[in-house]
């Protein structure tokens, strides 16, 4: 459904993307992780046909992205970080414009607003919405045409944890209804919680990709078990056969208060691969 091969893009002398390959299966949530300036937004703009790549091929819905018809575009929902809304118009009027453009019935407006939890704010001017509500309005706009593919650029950037969780639930619901979701984020917890697969992007190059849990296991070099004992002491033991004997003894004596394995997070994997933090500004 979303497929790109050997995609290149430069702005003047600066290479923004270098040989990007992606093949995202239908009905999955894919996360593109990278710090600010890694090339995430450029890639999403190329995938959505907003800008052209300097080289390589991009296929969306089985067609070259530059050959998508108006009808095809109705199957694609997009929210970019900087996409605006009509401030003076109400939430419902904002969606009415796009319902007319997409040719969907007006009843979809109410459904889309209720889906994102803005059912009670239909008549509220967009200028009076909080940042989280504006993001949800943008999502409602993207959902209204029941897209097969959703491109979400930093959908939860700058939102409070509760709103973030609500938006995660909406994205999961969309996936469950068969939608393919492509999201960019620099929040590794979001990627871990939401995505079926992720790619780590740094300076325009994909440095790692796969299922988040598998990536973390792959880079688990320490292979240790860390414990905090009831005596207040911290203890680390190698994650091997001998650990079973030690752990059994500690458990039998009731000495373990907390226990963790030592596999890294996506953040530490990214740090190991690039020397940069994901949330670098």
């Amino acid at each position: 459904m979303i497929c790109c091969s050997n995609v290149y893009k430069s702005y003047g002398e600066k290479k923004v993307l270098s040989g990007i390959d992606l093949d995202i299966p239908d009905g999955t949530i894919f996360g593109l992780l990278g710090p600010s300036g890694a090339g995430k937004t450029t890639l999403i703009k190329i995938l959505t046909g907003q800008i052209k790549a300097d080289g390589g091929s991009v296929k969306i819905l089985g067609k070259d992205v530059n050959e998508l018809s108006g009808q095809d575009k109705k199957h694609i929902g997009i929210t970019m970080d900087n996409f605006g809304v009509y401030d003076r118009l109400s939430c419902a009027d904002n969606l009415k414009i796009f319902a007319d453009i997409y040719g969907v019935p007006r009843s979809c407006i109410k459904e889309a607003l209720e889906l994102v939890g803005l059912g009670d704010s239909m008549k509220k001017p967009a200028s009076e919405l909080s940042k989280g509500m504006r993001v949800r309005l943008c999502l409602a706009r993207a959902f209204m045409s029941s897209p097969e593919i959703l491109f979400l650029d930093e959908p939860t950037s700058g939102l409070d944890p509760q709103t973030m969780r609500q938006i995660h639930d909406i994205i999961r619901d969309k996936k469950n209804s068969g939608c393919t979701v492509f999201l960019t984020t620099h929040n590794m917890e979001e990627a871990y919680a939401l995505c079926d697969s992720v790619s780590l992007l740094n300076d325009g190059v994909i440095v790692e990709n796969g299922v988040p849990e598998e990536i973390c296991r792959k880079y688990d070099h320490q292979k240790k078990i860390k414990m905090h004992l009831s005596t207040g002491e911290d203890m680390e033991i190698p994650h091997d056969r001998r650990a079973a004997t030690v752990l059994t003894g500690l458990f039998e004596n009731g000495r373990i208060e907390t226990i963790h394995s030592s596999e890294p997070t996506l953040e530490t994997v990214f740090l190991e691969l690039t020397g940069r933090k994901l949330e670098d500004a």
């Binding site: 959505t48 907003q50 108006g70 575009k73 109705k74 997009i78 970019m80 900087n82 996409f83 605006g84 809304v85 009509y86 401030d87 796009f98 453009i101 997409y102 706009r141």
Partner: peptide, 13 residues
Amino acid sequence: EKNTLRVLMMADV
């Protein structure tokens, strides 16, 4: 300025 034009263009206007 408000990037609503880009949204319209993406919706095939």
